[in-house]
Simulated assay, not measured.
Amino acid sequence: MTFSVTGRLAEPVRYTDAPRRRDELLRRLRAAGYLSATHAAADLDVSEMTIRRDLGQLELDGLAVRVTGGARLPDGDGVPFELRTDRSAAQKAAVARAVAALLPPDATVALDSGTTVARLAELLPAGLTVVTHSVPVLTACAARPDLRLIGLGGVFNPATRSFGGPAVGRALEDIAVDLAVLSATAVGPSGVFCADPYDAETKRALAAASRSVVVAADGSKLAARAPIRFAPLDAVSTLVTDSSADDAAVRALTAAGLHVDVAGG
């Protein structure tokens, strides 16, 4: 029960304005990874039909995926990190091995969050300096005395098991990075995309601090969609994908001027 400063019972907050209501639904969805339509309707004091319409619009905008009883974040972003690690495991492993072969000796390398990059962290050659905001990458590299590790702080995101936000960008202002390895939710001729604005901000900061950028994305990402472009193709030196990628999609990216390395192809 909520009371106002006068001691009277306060009126519940009503989200009768659709854009404001959808913003609140998206905020809750990003915080938890999954949103129950029934619970959201009760909390926001609107009908379940209204919530379902809102979730349908968020899905059209590429910000959510409708599932039984509610919605989740796109491309598995609402699925626990450990479960996403098992998806396309062989393809991600192939991409990770191919990226590891591209890393310059004794370089300073920035590693993004994401399950493919987490696999890469297990394959790093000795002598690198690793800069990262990813907890799985930090954990893997901390056990390696032959690596130098620089951790980036910020606000923790349980869905990606990484830190993010403005603090990452500020920390990177004082670090010279030779190469950044970034993950992506989707890759196409118009650029490289993700599903979360805070994640996009972090990826842009990593790219801006680096002399060159490699995007590590299994073949499914070349057929995926996501709402937020964090880099145009001309900001990427190389895309590393795997042989499950659609040939036409690879040709389209190559025609757009991107160097594509197909692992196992």
Score class of each variant (00 low, 15 high):
7 G>F: 09
7 G>C: 06
7 G>S: 04
8 R>L: 15
11 E>A: 14
14 R>G: 13
16 T>V: 12
17 D>F: 05
20 R>H: 10
23 D>A: 15
24 E>Q: 15
28 R>D: 14
29 L>C: 02
30 R>C: 08
31 A>S: 14
34 Y>R: 15
37 A>W: 11
43 D>C: 02
48 E>W: 07
49 M>P: 00
55 L>T: 00
56 G>V: 01
57 Q>A: 10
59 E>I: 00
66 R>K: 12
66 R>A: 07
67 V>N: 05
71 A>G: 09
74 P>M: 09
79 V>F: 04
79 V>C: 07
82 E>P: 03
82 E>R: 12
82 E>I: 15
83 L>H: 09
84 R>N: 07
87 R>V: 12
91 Q>T: 02
94 A>K: 12
94 A>C: 06
97 R>Y: 00
98 A>P: 13
98 A>S: 14
101 A>C: 05
103 L>C: 02
104 P>F: 01
106 D>W: 01
110 A>H: 01
110 A>K: 07
111 L>G: 08
115 T>Q: 03
117 V>L: 12
119 R>T: 03
125 P>E: 02
132 T>L: 06
134 S>N: 10
134 S>G: 13
136 P>W: 03
138 L>I: 14
139 T>M: 13
139 T>H: 14
139 T>I: 15
141 C>S: 10
144 R>T: 07
145 P>W: 00
146 D>S: 05
148 R>I: 12
148 R>M: 12
154 G>D: 04
157 N>C: 01
165 G>E: 06
165 G>H: 03
166 P>V: 08
166 P>G: 01
168 V>T: 10
171 A>H: 13
178 D>K: 04
179 L>K: 03
180 A>V: 13
182 L>G: 10
186 A>H: 04
189 P>R: 13
193 F>R: 09
193 F>T: 05
194 C>G: 13
195 A>P: 02
199 D>S: 10
199 D>T: 14
201 E>F: 03
203 K>L: 13
204 R>I: 08
204 R>H: 07
207 A>F: 00
210 S>K: 02
210 S>N: 01
211 R>Q: 13
214 V>K: 00
216 A>I: 05
217 A>N: 03
217 A>I: 04
218 D>L: 12
220 S>I: 09
223 A>Q: 09
224 A>E: 06
224 A>G: 09
226 A>V: 10
226 A>E: 05
227 P>K: 10
231 A>N: 09
242 D>F: 11
250 V>A: 01
256 A>L: 06
261 D>S: 11
